[in-house]
Structure formats: C-alpha cells, structure tokens
Design a protein around this nucleic acid. Sequence first.
DNA 1: TACCAGGAGAGCG
DNA 2: CGCTCTCATGGT
Length: 289
Amino acid sequence: MAADEIFLRVRDYDLAATLTSGQAFRWEARDGAWEGIVGRRWVRLEPRDDGIRARVAEATSDWRWLTHYLQSEVELAAVLATFPPDEPLRVAVAAHRGLRLLRQDPWECLASFILSSTKQIPQIRQVVGRLCKSYGEPVPVPPGQGPAFAFPLPERLAGTTEAELRRCKMGFRAPHLLATAHAVADGRMRLDRLASLPLELARAALLDLPGVGLKIANCVLLFAYGFPTAFPVDVWVARALGRLYFPRQHLSMARMRRFAETHFGPHGGYAQQYLFHYMRHSGRNGNAR
DNA sequence: TACCAGGAGAGCG
DNA sequence: CGCTCTCATGGT
C-alpha cells in the first residue's frame, strides 16, 4: 500500500552527523528535520529515538531506494567491531557514535567531488546547489514547499559550455566536470560497470577522468560504490592521522595512505569517516563549520 | 592582508 | 618517488 511516509526502525543512526559529514552536499536542516533530494525524490527525514521518520512528496509502496541510500540496515556494531582497538579511533567513535556511510548515486557523487577540490564544505554545497538549480529537473514537492531540483544528468551538463558552468562558481573545476560529463554521456565511461570490478580496477578507471585524483576517486569508491576499504585522505584526515597516530613527526601523504590501508582493517572507510568528522568537530582543531 | 579549503596535475630533481 | 607551483573564490 502506498504511503507518503514511513518509519524506519534503526538503532545507532546519527542523522545530523551522517548528513553533515562531507559525504553528501544537498541536505538542509529545517525544524529539527533534514530535507534533501535522493534521486528524483524530495525527502524529509526526522530523527526519532528508535529510528527515522521519512516523508516524501508522492506516495510510494517501495522504500528500498531510501534504505539503500541511508544504509539503515547495516549493523553498525558489527562494523565497529572490526576496528583496531586503538585509543584515537575509540575516542572518535565515542564522539559521534551513529555516524554512518551513505550509499549515493555514482554520477552525483563523482560530479560533486570533482567540484569539491580545494573547497570548504559550505562552498561545495553552494556550488552544487547552483548547479542543480540551473540544470537539474524540477521534482515534485509537498504543498507549501519551495521548488526543488534533481542533480543534473550527465547528458544535460554535456550540453553546456565551460563558460556556462563557471557561472555556478566552480572556477577551474568547470572543464573537468564538463569533460567528465561528456565521457559519461558518450558511454566512454560506464559508471554502472565499476560496481562489479575489483577495487583497484574501479579506481584506475576513475583516475582516468580529468579532475579525479586519488582522493576524489577514493571518495566515490567509498560513498557511491561502497568499497569498504577505500580510504580518502584529505587535509583533515591527514591532520587526524598526524596528530593522533604520529605526533611530532612528518609523514608524507603517500606514507599516511600506506599506514591507513593496513592499519584500519576491512572497514577502513568507516574509520576514516569517524576520524574526519571527529577532527572537524573537536575543539582543538575543529574550527570547521 | 594573509591564509585556508574533503586536490589535481604538471614540472622537476 | 617526492617536492613545488598554480588553478578560483569566498570565508575568517
């Protein structure tokens, strides 16, 4: 039976931490809930003690798209149990227990992270917002809501120009996004096929795209394809690894990556997300906002 | 003003 | 491999 709302019973799900931890860039807090777009659906998520209440604009009977996106059926305790028993990670997990990894659409994730390089999260949100408003298809919203837009399809962006994309304030990232949109729209890059490849091959395919280096490739592998050991190292994670694991030493990015690959185990990607979020919100050096 | 941001890519030793 | 520089732009 179709309904416009559902209750997802789930423990240990911190919506605020999950939706603001730099994985996805389109969620906005409103009246104690979170509003965003998943695929072509407007969604409102309301945190409850024993789960999440979700509401959509148009009634549906199939909610797998949402549980898949939220990964709400992942047993978090089993993931945390694989972490190495070191103090820094224990503290980071304790600070935001309930932080989860989402499972996002590969194209939206890839395009968003191409726009992320050397930008702060609030700015990434602004650029992505402008891109969706300019080129995304409008999606149905509940009465009284302002207009909302899906993430633009690669074909749509491939039909624009670098100058047009630059109006979204993406700067030097515009040609990278445009070229990648062409590669996906042409079929030269088949994002759907990466899911069945081994990690290294999927990563190599992503690294062929302009504007995609190791960090962004790992973000897409982790946040969209769910490769559990993909471990993005940005300035915050590098800071966390340096401060927490190698105090008063200097490690190159390459050495940090090598350490991370072997140290954090089969769910290193999850560990990375806890370290990232902890570092951005722990007073001493978490001046992020 | 100077510095920084969920970096990439090119040039160079 | 590993270092340095540039790219664009808004925030502090």
